[in-house]
């Protein structure tokens, strides 16, 4: 189950999207999120979905991989859908005692679920096609101007990059400790909430101990390799805009403009 989380996982292949500058992809993701909240009509959603489909197709990431990422947040989707379905006031089309489903409810629920799903897939396409190192490079350079107001941009980027590298390792470790405790009779499947919380102690304590040990080891290893912060560091893969990046920017902004335009149209 833990392997299903696609967010933060890099899918290694070579595609147009993979080759884009991370800053473009960051900006693209931001624009995509904005666009999702701009559109208000089915045509707009269709446009959003179409745009995402084209990007996914270009990225060569298997659709299966994307769907699997959605599995992890299926509960979130269901909850969002549920609340919107039953608690949106409007013209009821089905009623049972105090519970009712309205036309608006159905519309709200479906757009909400669609919006969330698109949002998750849209952002995961960024992490799937960008090595976290590039991603943090992109953040570091893209947000470099914040250094002027003393924001430790390099340090934050490095922390993110390390966190991303250790997520799969810690997930595997969680799985292992869980099994080891189950072999000693621990019950992680109990329905009782208090019991469930209690059962987490034998899992969380070893996990934290291990995380601290790893952090300590890693800090030593980084120092041993002369890491001393961002000062005086050169880049193995310095970021440089190419022609394709400029082209991508144009497409992204055109897309965003179109979405905003479609959103406005509905109101006018």
């Amino acid at each position: 189950m833990l392997r299903d989380i696609t967010l933060g996982q890099y899918y290694s292949t070579d595609s147009v999207i993979h080759r884009l500058d991370p800053r473009v992809k960051l900006m693209g993701t931001l624009c995509y999120i904005i666009s999702l909240f701009c559109v208000k009509n089915p045509l707009g959603y269709a446009l959003c979905a179409l745009f995402l489909c084209i990007v996914i197709a270009l990225s060569k990431v298997p659709v299966k991989f994307m769907i699997r990422g959605l599995k992890a947040i299926i509960l979130l989707l269901l909850i969002a859908g549920f609340f919107n379905l039953f608690f949106t006031p409007g013209d009821p089309i089905w009623q049972w005692k105090k519970i009712s489903i309205s036309k608006q409810g159905i519309y709200m629920a479906s757009t909400m679920v669609l919006r969330l799903a698109l949002l998750i897939m849209g952002s995961s396409i960024m992490t799937l096609t960008t090595t976290p190192n590039y991603l943090t490079d992109g953040l570091e350079k893209g947000l470099g101007f914040l250094k002027v107001i003393k924001v430790p941009v390099h340090e934050i980027a490095m922390m993110m990059s390390i966190a991303l590298r250790f997520i799969p390792i810690l997930l595997e470790e969680t799985d292992k400790i869980m099994k080891a405790q189950m072999a000693r009779g621990a019950d992680f499947e109990s329905k009782n909430i208090i019991k469930k919380a209690k059962a987490l102690v034998p899992l969380l304590v070893p996990l934290f101990v291990s995380a601290f040990r790893r952090a300590n080891d890693l800090a030593l290893a980084m120092e041993a390799r002369c890491y001393r912060g961002g000062e005086g560091r050169t880049k193995m893969k310095p970021l440089k805009y190419k022609k394709s990046d400029a082209f991508a920017y144009i497409i992204i902004f055109a897309y965003l403009a179109l979405c905003i335009f479609l959103g406005r149209m509905l109101f006018s």
Partner: peptide, 28 residues
């Protein structure tokens, strides 16, 4: 060091190998 997992910083083999020289300020 001993633990192979806890001393690799990069997400990709070549990026990790480049980490040291980057710190030393070696030209790209």
């Amino acid at each position: 060091f001993q633990n192979p997992d806890n001393q690799i910083i990069g997400q990709i083999v070549e990026e990790d190998v480049g980490f040291g020289p980057e710190n030393l300020g070696t030209p790209t």
